[in-house]
Design a protein around this nucleic acid. Sequence first.
DNA 1: TTGAAAGCGCTACCAA
DNA 2: TTGGTAGCGCTTTCAA
Lengths: 341, 341
Amino acid sequence: MSEVTIIEVAEEAEVSPATVSRVLNDTAPVSSEKEEKVKKAVEKLNYKPNKFAHALRKQRSDIIGVVVPDVSNPYFATLIRGAETYLHETNKSALICDTNSKTEQEGEYVNTLLRERVDGVILVSSGEDSKQLEVLLKNDIPLVAADRDPHLDNISKVLAHNSHGGELATNHLIEKGYKSFGFVKGPTGISTAVSRYKGFKKVINERDVTINQNFVFKGDYTYESGREAGRKLLERVQDDMLPIGIIAADDLMGLGVLWELNSAGVKVPGDFGVVGFDDILMAKLMYPSLSTVAMPAYQIGREAAKLVIENIKRADQNLNTTKTEKVFEVELIERKSTNRN
Amino acid sequence: MSEVTIIEVAEEAEVSPATVSRVLNDTAPVSSEKEEKVKKAVEKLNYKPNKFAHALRKQRSDIIGVVVPDVSNPYFATLIRGAETYLHETNKSALICDTNSKTEQEGEYVNTLLRERVDGVILVSSGEDSKQLEVLLKNDIPLVAADRDPHLDNISKVLAHNSHGGELATNHLIEKGYKSFGFVKGPTGISTAVSRYKGFKKVINERDVTINQNFVFKGDYTYESGREAGRKLLERVQDDMLPIGIIAADDLMGLGVLWELNSAGVKVPGDFGVVGFDDILMAKLMYPSLSTVAMPAYQIGREAAKLVIENIKRADQNLNTTKTEKVFEVELIERKSTNRN
DNA sequence: TTGAAAGCGCTACCAA
DNA sequence: TTGGTAGCGCTTTCAA
C-alpha cells in the first residue's frame, strides 16, 4: 500500500505542505497560481488525505453516534438512513448503536461513544429515562433527540406530531363506518406511544362513539405483540360489535393483528378495519395492504443530523449550543385494510 | 473533552509509555509487577486509547469494507449483520457500501474504500463482472466474495448451494401435488439466480413433469418484478393447468406473486403454490406465509468476515493469502403457501 | 525486561 | 500570502 502523503504533493507542486493543507481545507487564502499547481499535483498523484492524521491533529473524528432502540425495526432503519444520508453529504459518518430497546444498554453505549470519540450523538431514546446520556453533555458532546422525547433538559428535539396522528387514524375509522373501536398500545412511557393513544382518546371523547376496554391491548411495538392482541381480539369479539376498527400504535403490531384476522378468516376490511403507524414498506406489501399514519422517519433522521452538525460547528467556535424543537406533521395513508365503503 | 493519554497512564504507573503500550497490546513481555501497575492506572484514569493515533502509527484502520447490491433488501441486511457481528467481536468495524445493484457503482466505491484505508473488503457482487475491484488486490487489500460468485480469480469465496436449493423447491412442489410449474428468475448473470434456475430445470427434467414456458418470467430480485410476474401469470393461466406451482428466485419476488394471487382472489395454496428463496422475515409475516428455501445469510456474512480477517493477519506476517471456497447447505422451510394436502 | 526517542501524516502557529 | 516546524497520541526500533 503506497501511501501518497501531503509532503509528496507539496514537492510535486513546489510549495510547502502547509499550503497544500490550506488549499485542501480552504482554511486560508492561497494565490490562485499555487492553488492551481496544488490541485494538479493532487490529481496527478491521486492523493487521498490520511483521515487518521487529520483526526489526530484536529481532535475531531467526524463520526456521529446514532443510538436507536432496534435497527431491525424498519421504521428506525429509515430514520437512520435519513441521518446517514445527511452525514455523508457533509463528509461525516455514523456509528450505529442498537440498544435492543433497553435503557441500560444506552448507558453501556456511552463508553463506546467516548472511546470512538464521536463528535456528536443522535438519540432515539429507548425508555422514559435517558439520563445516562447526560455524561455526553458533560464531555461537551452535542446531543440531539429524535423521534421520541427522552425528557432531558437543554437538548434539541426532532419529533413528529403523534397525537395528531392518533386523531387522524380515529377519525378515519369513524368515517369509514366502523362502530366500535380498539387500540393496541405501544410500550409504556415512550412519548410516541403515549401521544398516539392520547389522540385516539381525544377523538373518541369528542365524537359520539364507543370504546370497548376489552379491545385495548398492551403492546411493545413488536410484530409478536400485535399477533397476541389480534388473538385476544378474536376471543373477545361478538357479532353485535361489528364492524370494529382497531388502531395499532405501529405498523408491525398492525401487521400482526391483520395476520390473525386473516388466519381466522374474518372479513377485513368488511367487519374489521386496522390502521397502523409509521408506513413501513411491509404495510404496503401485506394483503390486504395496511392503512397507516405515515411518519416522516427519513426527515426526522435527516433533521436530527443537521442539528447535531450545527451544534458541533457552534461548539468549534466556542458558541453555546442552541436548543430548538422541531415537530413534523404526519399523514394518513388509506389502503385496503380500512376500505369498507 | 479531557483526553487521557498514554503518557499520563505511564506517569501514574511510574513506567514508560512504551511499557504501557506493551501491556495494552500484549506485544512484548512485561514483568507482572509493572503489568499490574499499568492495569491499575488504566482503570483509575479510565484511559481509552486514541484510535486515530493508533491507526496512524500502525497503518491499519481496523475497518473492513462491505460492498453489497442493496442494503434495503432484508436478505443482504442479514448477511451484513452476520459480518458485522464477527467484526465487532474482533474489534473491527464495517464500512457498508450500497451499490444499488450497479457494477459501475462498485467501481466508484473503490475510491471510497481506498480513501478510508480499509484493511480488507467483503464483496457481494452486483453483476457478472466485478473486475473493477481487482484494483484492491493490487493495493494488497484482501478481498473475499460472499453469497455470489464474482468470477474473479485468486480470491476466497463463501457461497451457498443454490442449485440444490432449486432442486429442493421443485421436489417440494411436485410432492405437494402441483401439476404445472413456473419460475420467476433472478437477474441475468448473477450466480445465485443462475444456479437456482438450473436446479429447477434439473428436477423438472428428471421427473416426469411439465414446465410451461409461459410461466417462466424475468425478474430482478425486487418485489415489483414479482408483482409483475404475478400479473402475467394470472393473465396466462387456464383452468386445466391447475394446480400450478411457482418458484420465485427470491422471497421478495415470491411475496409479489403472492400479493397478486391474493388480490385476484384465487386459491393459495389450493390452486397455486409459491416457494421463495432466502427466508426473510416478511416471508413468515405474509398471509399466507411463504414457503421458502432458507439461505444462511447470517452465516455467509460471518464466514466471509472471518476469512478477510484471516487474510489480513497473514498479510501482516508477509504470508501470501489463502484461497478457500466454502459452500453452505440450504434448507427448505414449509409454510402455508404450498400446503395443499 | 525496560526506557528514550523517532516518526506515522496532518494542521496551525509563528515569523517573514 | 507563504514556509518552517512543533506536536496531536501512539508504536516500535535501538540500546541498555
